[in-house]
Nucleic acid binder design. Structure first.
Length: 914
RNA sequence: GGGCGAUUGGCUCAGUGGUUAGAGCACGCGGUUCACAUCCGCGGGGUCACUGGUUCGAAUCCAGUAUCGCCCACCA
C-alpha cells in the first residue's frame, strides 16, 4: 500500500538527515502524501490501527460554503476538529472525520448573480436550467480551492467519504425527511407573514433578518372619522396615528388603541376613512397597543407588519398586500402603482401634507430588519409557504441537553440554547431561489397537495388520484439549512440502513462556531431527534470567532480577512494550528495577529533541534539502527528519574486538558513541558552524563534512552496539534519493532506514574542553580567566568547534591566543593552567598571591593523580603481562626513554609553579621 | 427591554477559594556554553475595572456600579 511497511525497520537514529531548522512547506506536502498513501485517514482504511473493541469516534465536519475560499475561522475549526480526531485515532478508536461542502443556496446565488451581472446576464435572462448549469461550473472550481486548503492544513479527513449537500445522497435525505415531517403533521403549507428580501427576491428566515439601528422618521398623520349620520369623513373628528412607513397606509385595515385608554374610549368601534384608497376601517381596542408611544393610536397594516398581523388575526381584520416582489406598490395601491416603496413613501407624505392631514414628523431611532446576505431592507409580506412546526421538535432538543445526553461546551451556552428553543417560532422552509433542493410537493389543479420522496414524484394526486402529468411541482426550494440540519446522518447514508450509519451514528462531537448555534446546531438536534430518534452528537463544542488585531470581525467588505494559505506559506501549517489552538478558549472570541504565529513556528523549531541534538548524542555503544528500548532502571540517575517523571506529568496534563476540552491548555502544557522543562533543564542536565567518558556505558545508554523515550512521548503528545513536524521527527527517531511507521497511527502515550521524590530532589537543585545564576548577574560576575563554589546541604540532601555536583557545576558555571553537612556554615570573607530552601552556596569571586559592597546590599534586600514573608507566615500560623478552620493540610503547609523562611532569614542574618 | 460575555503587566491572554498571581510577545542587561540567535542566561513591570459583602483566607464566591462586545426581543 504505502511506500513503507506497517512497522519500522528498527531505529534510524541519526541527525544527519535533519536540516538545522524546521523548514515546513515541502516537508508538509510530502508528509500529507505519505498519510494518503498509507490510507490512515479512513477508520477502516488499510493503514488504520483502530481497536475494534473500542467505540468509534466521529466528527462530521461542518461543511464550509461552496462560495469561496476558507478564512482563518475555518482554519481554526479544522485545527480543533483535527486535534480531537487525531487524539481519538491514537487512542485506538475508529476515528471518522467526514469532510463536506455546503451548497449555500442563497449565498451562492448572491455571488453568482453578481458574477453573471458583469457579463451582462441575469437569472432571468439565463433561465432556470442554464443558470443551474452555470452554478455547477462555478462551484466545481471553488470546491477544489477549498479542499486544497484543508489538505494544506493537515486535515485528516476521510476523503473517500467526502459529501456535498447537493449530492444524490443528500437529495434523497432531504426528500425523505420532508415527507416524514409532512406525514407527521409537522411540515405544513400556509399563507403567513414572512420576511421578504426584495434584493434576493426570496423569503428569508427570522435568523437571516438582521435588526439594524437606523435613524428614520416618525410621521404623525391623521385619519378622519366617519360621521355616522352621513357616512362620510368628518372634517373635524380625527384620530392621529404615528408611523415610520407612511406608504403602508394603502394596506391599512384598522386603527388600534389600548382598551383602557380614556382618550380614545369614545371612538372605539367607529370607522375612519383611509385616504387615497378610500377604505373605511374600524377603530379597535387591543392590549398590544402601547399608550405611551406616539399618539397612543396605531394604524394597522396586517399584511406588512408582524405586530399588526397578530392583532389582525385576533380581530379578524382583512389583510391587504400592497407591495410586490420588488417592493413596489402593487395594484391595490390605486394611484401609486409601480412606485418603489421609498418613492411611494415620499409621495404619500407630500400628498398627506397637501390634504392637511400630516400633523408632524420627527427623527426616530429604530431597528430596521436587513437581509443578512444583501443588506436590503426586509419587508414583511403575506405569502403561501412551507413551514415546519418547531415546538414539538424543540421540546425534545431541550430534553436532550437538560438530561445531559448532549453536553454544550462551554456550559453557559445552555442558557442561550434554552431561551431560544423555548421561544422558538415556526421555521419558514420555502425559498424562492433556484439553487438548492426543490421542495418535493406537487399540486393538482384542484389545489390538492401531494408530497413524495420518490425521485419522479407521486404517481398520482394523493387526494383525487389525478395522474401525475396533471400535477405541478412546487417551484420553491428549501432553506439551505434544511439540508444542513440532516448533515450528521445524511452523510452516513440515512435514510438507508447503511453500515456507516450503524457504526458511526450518533456522532461524537459537533464542533462549530457559536454564531451558528441556532442556524445549524439546534436544527440538527431537532431534526436528528425526530428522524433518527437519537441525539446526533453527545457533545457540542462551540468555538469562538477569530477577529483581527483590533478585535473586529473579519469580513470581505472590511478587507481584513486573513488567508490561511498566506499565513501557512510564511510560518507553516503547524505554526498556524498551534496559534489558533493556543487561543482556543471555548466560546470565547480570539484576536489574531501575525505575531502569534511566531510562537508556534519557534516551538516547532525548538522540538526539531532538540531531536537533532538527541540523535547526535547517541553513545557509541548503541548502534545507529538499534531498536528503541526502555532505559535500564538500574542505571537511572536522579536526572533521568526527574525527566521521566516530568514527562509523565506532561502526559497527565495533556490528558486532563483534552478530556475537559481545554484545548488551549493542551498547547500550554506541551510548550512548558517540552521547552521549559525538557529542553531547558532535562537536556542540559543530561549532557553531563552523556559527555562523561569515565562513566560505564550502561549509565550513558540509560541517559540516552531516557531522552529518546521522552522525546518520543512528546512527539506523540504534540502530534494532534502539530501533525507535520511530529510526523517528520517520528521517522527520525528509533522505534520499537511493533511501532507503526507513522506517528498518526501510533498509540497515545500512557504514563508509568510519577516519581515525586525524584522530582522534589532535582527541583531543589534547579532552584539552587537558578539562584546562583541570579546572584552572579547581580554581583556583576562576567558570564564566562568560572567561580569557585562551596556548597552545603543538610544530611538527607547531601547525597543527592554530591551525585549531581557535576551538573550543578556545568549549569551554574562554578567549580564546586561540597562541604560536610556539619561544617556547612563557613563562608569565606567577600564570598557571594546563596541561600535557597535548605541548600546554601558561597561563591568566591575575584577579590573586588565593589562586588563585596554590592553583595552586602543584595543580601540586605533579600533579608528584607524574606522577613516580610516570614512575618506574614507567622501571623497566619499563630492565628487561632486559621488553625481552627483551615484544613489541616493547609495549616501544615503554612507551618513548614514559616519554618523554611525562618531558617533562611537566620542564615542571611548570619552572613550579614547582624 | 431581557440575557450572556469581557475587564489581570505596554500588548495578547491563562488562571473558579489556599503560601509570594503566571505565560508568550514587547522591554532592559549580559552571552562566540560543541541542538537551536526561530537561541541561551538574568531582570524590571500588575492596588487582578470599581464599591460593598461572605470567608480563617477572594483575581476566584455573592450583590451592585461602570465601560466595551455579543445574542435575543413585533414600540408602530
Amino acid at each position: 500500500m504505502g511506500e513503507r511497511q506497517a512497522t519500522t525497520d528498527g531505529g534510524r537514529a541519526s541527525s544527519d538527515a535533519l536540516p538545522k531548522a524546521y523548514v515546513p512547506a515541502d516537508v508538509e506536502s510530502a508528509i500529507y502524501q505519505r498519510w494518503l498513501a498509507a490510507d490512515v485517514f479512513a477508520p477502516d482504511g488499510a493503514g488504520s490501527r483502530a481497536n475494534p473493541a473500542l467505540p468509534p469516534f466521529t466528527i462530521i465536519q461542518p461543511p464550509p460554503n461552496i462560495t469561496g475560499s476558507l478564512h482563518l475561522g475555518h482554519a481554526q475549526r479544522t485545527a480543533v476538529e483535527d486535534l480531537l480526531i487525531r487524539h481519538a485515532r491514537m487512542r485506538g478508536r475508529a476515528a471518522l472525520f467526514l469532510p463536506g461542502v455546503d451548497h449555500a443556496s442563497i449565498a451562492a446565488q448572491y455571488v453568482l448573480d453578481r458574477i453573471i451581472a458583469t457579463e451582462g446576464e441575469s437569472r432571468e435572462s439565463l433561465g432556470r436550467e442554464r443558470y443551474l448549469e452555470r452554478m455547477w461550473t462555478f462551484i466545481n472550481a471553488t470546491r477544489e480551492v477549498m479542499l486544497g486548503q484543508q489538505r494544506r492544513l493537515g486535515a485528516s479527513t476521510d476523503w473517500s467519504r467526502l459529501r456535498f449537500t447537493m449530492d444524490d445522497g443528500s437529495a434523497k435525505a432531504v426528500r425523505v425527511a420532508f415527507e416524514r415531517l409532512y406525514r407527521d403533521g409537522l411540515a405544513y403549507r400556509t399563507e403567513a407573514l414572512i420576511n421578504w428580501c426584495p434584493g434576493c427576491r426570496t423569503s428569508v428566515s427570522d435568523l437571516e433578518t438582521i435588526p439594524t439601528p437606523e435613524t428614520g422618521t416618525l410621521w404623525t398623520l391623521r385619519y378622519h372619522l366617519i360621521d355616522p349620520a352621513t357616512g362620510e369623513p368628518s372634517a373635524t373628528e380625527t384620530v392621529s396615528v404615528a408611523t415610520t412607513r407612511p406608504e403602508t397606509i394603502l394596506g391599512d385595515t384598522a386603527v388600534a388603541v389600548h382598551p383602557e385608554d380614556e382618550r380614545f374610549a369614545a371612538i372605539v368601534g367607529r370607522q375612519v376613512r383611509i385616504p387615497f384608497v378610500g377604505r373605511d376601517v374600524p377603530i379597535v381596542a387591543d392590549d398590544a397597543v402601547d399608550r405611551a408611544f406616539g399618539t397612543g393610536a396605531v394604524k394597522i397594516t396586517p399584511a406588512h407588519d408582524q405586530a399588526d398581523y397578530e392583532l389582525a388575526k385576533r380581530h379578524d381584520l382583512p389583510m391587504i398586500t400592497v407591495l410586490d416582489d420588488a417592493a413596489a406598490i402593487n395594484e391595490a395601491g390605486d394611484g401609486y402603482v409601480g412606485l418603489d416603496r421609498l418613492a411611494a413613501r415620499a409621495t404619500i407624505v407630500a400628498d398627506l401634507d397637501a390634504r392637511g392631514d400630516l400633523v408632524g414628523s420627527r427623527p426616530h431611532e429604530m431597528l430596521i430588519g436587513r437581509c443578512q446576505r444583501s443588506n436590503d431592507v426586509i419587508e414583511p409580506r403575506l405569502k403561501t409557504q412551507w413551514f415546519l412546526s418547531m415546538q414539538p421538535l424543540a421540546e425534545r432538543a431541550l430534553a436532550a441537553t437538560r438530561e445531559g445526553r448532549t453536553r454544550i461546551v462551554p456550559a453557559r451556552f445552555e442558557a442561550v440554547w434554552e431561551h431560544w428553543l423555548t421561544n422558538i417560532r415556526d421555521w419558514n422552509l420555502s425559498r424562492q431561489l433556484w439553487w438548492g433542493h426543490r421542495i418535493p410537493a406537487w399540486y393538482c389543479p384542484d389545489g390538492h397537495v401531494s408530497v413524495s420522496s420518490e425521485v419522479g414524484g407521486p404517481a398520482a394526486c394523493a387526494v383525487c388520484r389525478r395522474p401525475a402529468a396533471e400535477l405541478v411541482q412546487e417551484s420553491d426550494i428549501f432553506d439551505t439549512w434544511f439540508s444542513s440540519g440532516l448533515w450528521p446522518f445524511s452523510t452516513l447514508g440515512w435514510p438507508d440502513d447503511t453500515a456507516d450509519l450503524n457504526r458511526y451514528y450518533p456522532t461524537s462531537v459537533m464542533e462549530t462556531g457559536h454564531d451558528i448555534l441556532f442556524f445549524w446546531v439546534a436544527r440538527m438536534m431537532m431534526l436528528g431527534l425526530h428522524l433518527t430518534n437519537v441525539e446526533p452528537f453527545h457533545t457540542i463544542y462551540l468555538s469562538g470567532l477569530i477577529r483581527d488585531e483590533r478585535g473586529q470581525r473579519m469580513s470581505k467588505t472590511k478587507g481584513n480577512v486573513v488567508d490561511p494559505l498566506v499565513v501557512m506559506d510564511e510560518a507553516g501549517a503547524d505554526a498556524l494550528r498551534f496559534a489558533v489552538i493556543h487561543g482556543a478558549t471555548p466560546g470565547q472570541d480570539q484576536k489574531f495577529g501575525p505575531q502569534k504565529l511566531d510562537t508556534g513556528r519557534n516551538f516547532a523549531n525548538k522540538l526539531w533541534n532538540a531531536t537533532r541534538f538527541v540523535l547526535g548524542a547517541r553513545p557509541a555503544s548503541i548502534p545507529a539502527d538499534a531498536a528503541r528500548q526502555a532505559p535500564d532502571p538500574a542505571a537511572l540517575g536522579p536526572v533521568e528519574r526527574w525527566i521521566r517523571s516530568r514527562t509523565a506529568a506532561s502526559i497527565d496534563a495533556v490528558d486532563a486538558a483534552i478530556a475537559d476540552y481545554q484545548l488551549a491548555e493542551v498547547t500550554r502544557a506541551l510548550y512548558d513541558g517540552i521547552w521549559s522543562e525538557f529542553c531547558d533543564w532535562g537536556l542540559e542536565l543530561a549532557k553531563v552524563r552523556l559527555a562523561d567518558a569515565a562513566l560505564p556505558p550502561a549509565a550513558r545508554e540509560a541517559t540516552w534512552w531516557t531522552l529518546v523515550e521522552s522525546l518520543e512521548v512528546f512527539v506523540r503528545l504534540l502530534h494532534p496539534v502539530m501533525p507535520f513536524v511530529t510526523e517528520a521527527l517520528w521517522s527520525a527517531l528509533p522505534h520499537r519493532p511493533d511501532d507503526p511507521a507513522l506517528v498518526i497511527v501510533a498509540a497515545w502515550p500512557s504514563t508509568a506514574g510519577r516519581d515525586r521524590a525524584a522530582e522534589a530532589g532535582v527541583e531543589a537543585i534547579l532552584d539552587l542553580v537558578r539562584r546562583i545564576r541570579n546572584v552572579r548577574v547581580e554581583a556583576g560576575v562576567p558570564a564566562a567566568a568560572w567561580l569557585d563554589a562551596r556548597i552545603a546541604a543538610p544530611g538527607d540532601a547531601n547525597a543527592l547534591v554530591a551525585e549531581l555536583l557535576p551538573q550543578i557545576e556545568r549549569l551554574a558555571r562554578v567549580r564546586a566543593t561540597l562541604l560536610d553537612a556539619d561544617k556547612a556554615k563557613a563562608d569565606a570573607p567577600g564570598a557571594l552567598s546563596v541561600v535557597v530552601g535548605r541548600l546554601q552556596a558561597s561563591l568566591e569571586p575575584h577579590a573586588d571591593p565593589a562586588v563585596e559592597a554590592r553583595e552586602r546590599e543584595r543580601l540586605s534586600r533579600e533579608l528584607e523580603v524574606v522577613e516580610g514573608r516570614l512575618a506574614a507566615a507567622r501571623a497566619r500560623v499563630t492565628d487561632p481562626a486559621f488553625i481552627g478552620k483551615a484544613p489541616p493540610a493547609i495549616v501544615e503547609g503554612a507551618r513548614r513554609s514559616a519554618a523554611d523562611l525562618e531558617a533562611q532569614a537566620a542564615s542571611l542574618r548570619e552572613k550579614l553579621g547582624t
